[in-house]
Amino acid sequence: MLLVVFADGEVLTGLDLTGAVPAAAPVDALDIRLHRHADSPEWVDGFRSGPLRSLAERELPDVRRLDDATCCYSIQVRVPDPADLTHLQLAWAVATAAARSGATAVLDVFAHDWSPGPAVGVLDPYRPFTVLREISVVAESEPAPGFGHAVHTRGMIKFGRPDLIMGVPESGIGEAAQILNQLAAMLADGHVLHPGRRLRVDGSRSLTVVPYEPGDRIPDVRLIGDGLLITDDSPR
């Protein structure tokens, strides 16, 4: 789990998570670091430029506040094979504390998802944690020859699982997103998909799990971590 929290100054002083996380939360795995723009301009700006900036312009109400931030915090929790979602609750609790102290924007790095600081600041620490709120399902706008539009998850690494990708025609994007959401929920619940696994969807669709290996025919969507390609073997 990796969150990057932007602020106009140091806001995480005297952090107190009492009552905000369960006793089983892996506090020993929590790594919080302050990154001042004056000391590490390329590192800080790397999260608010390029594709991530394009997302920020769509998802934040005022991207100028992101530009004005003089520092950011990285909030990381490393759990190799999480048995539950307390590591997510822990990371978000720290981000919420920062937001309540004035942080302006929060980036969920693995899911490629921005949230305004005020919205994070009012999050209930005991809200249900669901996979659909922790990942993104992305449809690439340009089709790849012989593959179609790449529809894929981002953020499954937070559950210790690979991201999932399908190649579909434009007309199949919505259905592919639904399938990936269902599979992602299954993986987040502890299930595992191995290459060679065959799946039945809606009683008629036949899908096969294969390794995701970008190449001449399969586009590189720059996943963070491993990926699995879901191919459709149903008769056309």
Score class of each variant (00 low, 15 high):
residue 49 S to N: 08
residue 93 A to I: 03
residue 145 P to Q: 12
residue 58 R to F: 04
residue 162 P to W: 10
residue 234 S to H: 11
residue 32 I to V: 15
residue 157 I to Y: 06
residue 24 A to R: 14
residue 155 G to H: 03
residue 130 T to R: 14
residue 111 A to G: 09
residue 118 P to L: 06
residue 223 L to R: 01
residue 151 V to A: 07
residue 202 D to G: 14
residue 27 V to C: 05
residue 151 V to G: 07
residue 229 L to D: 00
residue 205 R to D: 01
residue 221 V to I: 03
residue 74 S to E: 13
residue 152 H to S: 11
residue 222 R to K: 14
residue 22 P to I: 04
residue 82 P to V: 02
residue 150 A to R: 07
residue 91 A to T: 06
residue 154 R to G: 04
residue 128 P to L: 10
residue 144 A to F: 03
residue 54 S to I: 10
residue 25 A to E: 05
residue 141 S to F: 09
residue 124 D to N: 12
residue 123 L to V: 01
residue 30 L to I: 04
residue 187 L to G: 11
residue 44 V to C: 14
residue 126 Y to W: 12
residue 164 L to W: 03
residue 188 A to L: 07
residue 212 Y to F: 04
residue 189 D to Y: 10
residue 171 S to N: 06
residue 149 H to S: 07
residue 184 A to I: 01
residue 74 S to M: 10
residue 178 Q to T: 05
residue 160 G to H: 05
residue 233 D to P: 00
residue 179 I to D: 01
residue 106 V to T: 05
residue 69 A to D: 02
residue 62 D to N: 14
residue 23 A to Q: 11
residue 31 D to S: 13
residue 53 R to C: 07
residue 105 A to C: 10
residue 99 A to G: 12
residue 64 R to C: 11
residue 174 G to D: 08
residue 106 V to C: 05
residue 180 L to I: 05
residue 68 D to Q: 15
residue 166 M to S: 04
residue 69 A to C: 14
residue 124 D to G: 03
residue 109 V to W: 04
residue 119 A to E: 08
residue 201 V to D: 11
residue 178 Q to E: 13
residue 63 V to L: 13
residue 173 I to L: 13
residue 5 V to H: 01
residue 212 Y to K: 02
residue 143 P to N: 00
residue 62 D to K: 11
residue 148 G to Q: 05
residue 209 V to C: 13
residue 215 G to H: 11
residue 20 A to V: 02
residue 20 A to Y: 00
residue 217 R to H: 12
residue 121 G to S: 09
residue 76 Q to Y: 10
residue 13 T to A: 15
residue 190 G to M: 05
residue 50 G to A: 15
residue 68 D to S: 15
residue 50 G to H: 07
residue 49 S to E: 08
residue 129 F to K: 08
residue 88 L to D: 00
residue 213 E to Y: 00
residue 205 R to S: 11
residue 163 D to T: 02
